[in-house]
Simulated scan of single mutants.
Amino acid sequence: MDHSLRQRVRQGDPAAFGELFDREAQAVYRHALRLSGNPQVAEEVVSVTFLEAWQGRHRLRPEGDSLLPWLLGIATNVHRNVARAARRHREALARLPPRQVVTDFADETVDRMGDAEKLHAVRAALARLRRADREVFTLCVWAGLSHAAAAEALGVPEGTVRSRLSRARTRLTKLTDEELKKTRAKPERPLPGGQHLVSRLQTARSTQETIR
């Protein structure tokens, strides 16, 4: 029972904490991955989340059912800190001279370009939401928490979660459409020597058909 596990975690039982990790680590990872879009960052968030959970176990409320909202609340805070550090790192890199990179496309990539375009648009739109709205959206929609559980995770009233979620859904739909339009309106990028991405893809496909 989660209630028994909660008590054992609060009392500092290592076996109980190991059980909690085995049960919820994947859910915390998925939440962190949705927030960051980066598997390495998500892994870091999971590690720090469980470390902070162990160190702060005495602050865990004695009553309640699932421990997942508590963990996701910690993970959300950890991600904020990790994101701030990553932003400072990106800003430092941006001050360095740019380096030209030419992407090498394969058939597998071409087949998935449509889905990748939509995923990129959703992630870009999500990043444009207010942080509070974005966190509520990821907890309720992607992590599947109830309004009450998300409120517990974020330490805000349930009514606040409902209003933020409604606002996030409306804004996200509009912003995703905007991002898709921006992506599709971008001019084709030339490759060195005047060759274009599309012609390169067509040439690769023609070569493969000739080999067949």
Rank of each mutant, 00 (worst) to 15 (best):
R8E: 05
R10H: 06
R10Q: 11
G12E: 12
A15R: 12
A16C: 10
A16W: 11
G18A: 13
E24V: 03
Q26S: 15
Y29N: 02
A32C: 12
L33V: 04
R34V: 09
G37N: 04
G37S: 04
N38I: 08
A42T: 10
A42G: 10
A42V: 09
E43N: 12
E43Y: 00
W54Q: 02
G56I: 06
R57P: 09
H58W: 12
L60A: 06
R61G: 15
R61Q: 15
P62A: 11
D65R: 06
I74L: 14
A83D: 14
R84P: 00
H89M: 03
R95Y: 11
L96E: 14
Q100C: 05
Q100H: 10
T103K: 03
F105V: 13
E108Y: 12
V110F: 14
D111C: 07
D111M: 08
R112E: 13
A116W: 12
E117Q: 13
E117F: 01
H120L: 11
R123Q: 12
L126T: 10
L126W: 02
A127H: 09
R128N: 04
R128S: 05
L129A: 06
V136S: 02
V136K: 02
F137S: 03
T138L: 15
G144C: 04
S146W: 00
H147C: 07
H147G: 09
A149P: 00
E152C: 04
E152P: 01
A153D: 07
P157D: 14
E158C: 13
R162F: 07
R167Q: 07
A168N: 09
L172T: 01
T173M: 03
T173N: 01
D177K: 14
D177S: 13
E178F: 02
E178N: 02
E178S: 08
L180C: 08
T183N: 06
E188D: 05
P190H: 02
G193E: 14
L197H: 03
S199T: 15
S206W: 12
T207S: 06
E209I: 12
I211H: 11
I211P: 01
